[in-house]
């Protein structure tokens, strides 16, 4: 565990040598700073999800409309690549911090309790969504890898991409590709699980990120709490609806 922590602290050590970055690295390397980075990266990824869902809802508008959108996106060229790199960096940061703070937290507990119970009453998941962040995060990560293989690389094993092929036998009909992937039973299953995990992850993550950024006020907490949960499950439900749509439309 200590070796892991040492390895994970390497980037910070290297960055701190870069002139002018010292204070930034210092404030980011405390447990509070790390959680703030975690929150910022998490909320950024959430922003991506909102945009992604908004785009994907074009599926409901029909083949032409969706493909136009996809085409417009692809024609951004280097901008898209830059955005994707940024997105990847956010993921890497978010996951890296999750692993490093998780390891640190294990060390902080030391010997574990023989019995540990919550005092927060009953919740649907034992211990509440916050106790499942690592598990749901890993499920989402697995789902994400599948998703990239299926949709971006279009080499998902067991997926029949035939309807999406153009004259040169390249799968460039994105609308048909999405339908092909989502209507593959194994994929529908993985995506459903992944998206439910995403919902759980966000149902704690969004509010938690806001709290980490200091957003908490007695007057607004109640409404904020429910807005965050609503956003989390709206995102998850939006994506899930597409899977159901694809299965139904087969």
């Amino acid at each position: 565990m200590d070796a892991l922590l040492r390895t994970l602290s390497l980037p910070a050590q290297i960055l701190s040598r870069v002139p002018g970055l010292g204070p930034l690295v210092k404030v980011c390397s405390t447990t509070v700073g790390q959680k703030i980075l975690m929150a910022i990266s998490g909320l950024s990824l959430c922003g991506f999800l909102v945009a992604h869902l908004a785009g994907n809802l074009k599926l409901y508008a029909g083949e032409q409309s969706f493909n136009d959108y996809a085409h417009a996106l692809h024609s951004l060229g280097p901008l898209l690549a830059a955005a994707e790199i940024g997105l990847f960096a956010m993921f890497a940061l978010h996951i890296g911090l999750a692993v490093s703070t998780g390891a640190l937290n294990k060390v902080a507990r030391g010997k574990d309790y023989f019995i540990k119970e919550t005092k927060q009453g009953v919740s649907i998941l034992p211990g509440g969504a916050s106790s499942w962040m690592m598990v749901t995060g890993l499920i989402v990560l697995f789902f994400l890898v599948c998703h990239i293989i299926d949709m971006k690389l279009k080499v998902g094993p067991g997926v029949d991409y035939t309807p999406a092929l153009n004259a040169e036998k390249i799968a460039d009909n994105e609308y048909q590709a999405v339908k092909a992937v989502l209507s593959t039973p194994s994929r529908a299953f993985i995506y459903m699980i992944g998206l439910v995990a995403l919902g759980i992850h966000l149902s704690h993550g969004i509010r938690s990120a806001l709290q980490t950024l200091g957003i908490n006020h007695k007057r607004w907490n109640f409404i904020l709490h429910w807005l965050c949960i609503a956003l989390a499950w709206t995102l998850a439900a939006g994506f899930i609806s597409l899977v159901i749509w694809a299965i139904g439309g087969k």
Binding site: V107, K119, Q120, S130
Partner: peptide, 13 residues
């Protein structure tokens, strides 16, 4: 050597 806060609110309870 304390851990970090994951906003679980178990402390408050």
């Amino acid at each position: 050597g304390f851990g970090s806060c994951t906003n679980t609110s178990e402390c408050e309870a």
